[in-house]
């Protein structure tokens, strides 16, 4: 599909450029005579090709009903937008917009009231409890993500 869309866009753009060029040449050579029929036809054809190509190459539509949109976030998690920032962090699409309320048990939220000591204690507890096993598990995870 992306190849078809790109091909349609390229062909459409060529036809469009050709139609414009022909119009310009015709009006400068014969300023008083009307345009021959094939130039407007080519213009219309190029428009049709370009429109189809642009529609086909556009990203998938987002749901416009609140419950479907919210359901998609729950089901799929954040989607990839396809580009990364300068720091190498991927830009992700929609996430739960109410996560900041911190109402889901075991999830992050309510930044303003975050307790760094508790978070650190939990992490250190995990490290102490894991010991050697932790390093192995980390190793495999690290491989998974790089």
């Amino acid at each position: 599909m992306p190849f078809l869309a790109a091909a349609l866009n390229v062909v459409g753009a060529i036809f469009l450029a050709h139609a414009i060029f022909s119009t310009h040449e015709h009006t400068s050579l014969h300023p008083l005579s009307p345009l021959p029929r094939d130039i407007p036809l080519e213009l219309l054809l190029s428009l049709a090709l370009l429109t189809t190509g642009i529609v086909l190459s556009s990203p998938p539509l987002k749901p416009i009903q609140w419950s479907h949109w919210a359901g998609k976030i729950s089901r799929e998690g954040p989607s990839r937008e396809g580009y990364v920032t300068r720091e190498g962090e991927e830009v992700l699409g929609d996430v739960d917009p109410y996560a900041y309320l911190g109402l889901e048990a075991g999830r992050e939220g309510r930044r303003g009231f975050w307790g760094p000591r508790e978070a650190r204690e939990r992490f250190l507890g995990w490290v102490k409890e894991g010991g050697e096993g932790v390093r192995l598990r980390l190793g495999s995870l690290w491989c998974e993500y790089t």
Binding site: E76, G77, P78, R80, T85, E87, E89, E90, V91, L92, V95, D96, A99, E104, G106, R107, E108, G109, Y145
Partner: peptide, 13 residues
């Protein structure tokens, strides 16, 4: 998780 952990949009869990 479907994505590696991200600092721009940190995971919720």
């Amino acid at each position: 998780p479907p994505h590696p952990p991200n600092l721009l949009t940190p995971p919720q869990t």
